[in-house]
Design a protein around this nucleic acid. Structure first.
Lengths: 255, 255
DNA sequence: CGCCGGTGCCGTACGTCGTACCGGCAGCGG
DNA sequence: CCGCTGCCGGTACGACGTACGGCACCGGCG
């Protein structure tokens, strides 16, 4: 379990898996399984039942094979997750870029948000060194292409992309936790608050945390709980883009 | 294990724990343990050995008691982690605010970064509904106080803080993963790249991903790997603050 | 003074996980 | 026809969180 995080102990093996360097088997009927079938089954489980439900036994069951057979195609769980991530990147749309840089960057942010909404498990799984699969590379290349020509240095362009994607991930994570916990605890966000509020009031002596109370309730009131994360995403995204345009304008002036 | 994430099944129990609603034992010598001792031991382990090493057995061992004795003070692991998080928030500095809002907000960002550097496990543990302990409330109150008067609505103020703290967390996570993996794999970032690069080159047909290659190597060159995350933090923070100042200026003009 | 209920402590055991190991199987080249 | 190679999977091990029940001790009451 602790070893789930190790991944890529053997670079050759892991990368070969990611890049699918494998001659198709010469067997007549071909094997019952394949890396792709394993990965598809795993993504399916993670999408519909959450990352906690993704166990090797569960994957095998979904494929109708013995547990250990999965290991014929994938060295371990960590590597399986790595391939799942790269596969998910692969299914992102990459239309020709249009509009000014701000429009393009905003589009990229929204596409990434959509990805995380489709595959919320990525938000909890991606916590390792980058996967370095072909689809991640393609995605990185595509996204950089949208902003290479805005007058910043290569290093800055990289930082801009990191910043925007970081914000998307933060916001997506916040949004995902709400629905995650609704499933796991069986209560909606509102119900959860209602069950905690009376106890909280009892512990908090009146008048403590005045600003927190005021702002907190104001925020809670405004967006009726479920829609809070969306506001945070939109507000933050516009602020980030504003901030980027400040440097872009600066550079344009000094040219 | 899946239940680690549940937490707060019983709000009364959990909140009482967080707010330490508990008469001191009337026992003569007093009990050998206490919630605080358990929490301190747990934080110590997580700080020095990582979150994966934090097991109930390990905590008990550090305290010199049987595994199950820990459960006398803490209902379960999820709740233990919650108290750990609130405790960590409690040790943050909260000096009187000084300077203009940008200085204050920047200070808050740096204090939060320092917190995550001291307790990297928080970056992987905080993935649940907010902990709602007294120290989190105090922190939230303190941080809001620094920016309530910059001319934005309460809802916007909340969103500003969320944005800044989100960026800090993103950057801290990136930085933490580097050192995390150095410990777990026993290789430095540079070594890791060197072991992967030849394989990667073999798989990537020359000329694929031209922009990614150029920008990636530029970024890698500039900051010698280990210092990349710091740059990302600084650059992103300034961009975010720039973006916020755009709205602030807007509001000031329209008043 | 003796008994009793409560509190702190903890050994054992169960169910879950990832996965090492090894033995069986089919199909194919020699 | 034989042995080899790649696919399959049963069994088992060592982690993990934690339910359950029992034990030792002590203050307060009769």
């Amino acid at each position: 379990m602790a070893t789930e995080r190790k991944a890529t102990a053997d670079p050759a093996r892991s990368l070969a898996l990611l890049w699918r360097t494998r001659e198709p088997t010469s067997r007549s009927a071909g094997p019952a399984l394949s890396v792709d079938r394993v990965v598809r089954a795993a993504i399916d489980i993670a999408d519909t039942e959450g990352l906690d439900a993704l166990t090797m036994r569960r994957v095998a069951e979904a494929l109708g094979v013995g547990t250990m057979s999965v290991y014929t195609y994938v060295p371990g769980k960590a590597e399986l997750v790595a391939v799942m991530i790269d596969t998910a990147y692969g299914e992102m749309p990459r239309p020709a870029v249009e509009g000014d840089w701000r429009t393009r960057l905003e589009r990229i942010a929204r596409d990434n948000l959509a990805l995380y909404q489709r595959h919320p498990w990525m938000l909890r799984a991606e916590t390792t060194r980058p996967v370095l699969g072909p689809h991640l590379m393609a995605k990185y290349d595509y996204e950089l292409a949208a902003i290479v020509d805005i007058g910043l240095t290569d290093v800055e362009v990289d930082a801009v992309l990191t910043l925007v994607l970081g914000h998307v991930k933060s916001a997506a994570r916040a949004a995902s936790e709400v629905v995650d916990l609704e499933r796991e605890t069986g209560m909606t966000d509102g119900q959860w608050w209602q069950s905690h509020a009376p106890w909280l009031e009892r512990f908090m002596t009146a008048g403590a945390y005045p600003i927190a109370s005021r702002v907190g309730t104001a925020a809670g009131q405004q967006h009726g709980a479920a829609y809070g994360p969306e506001y945070a995403f939109e507000f933050g995204l516009q602020r980030v883009l504003d901030g980027i345009s400040v440097v872009v304008a600066e550079r344009a002036a000094n040219r």
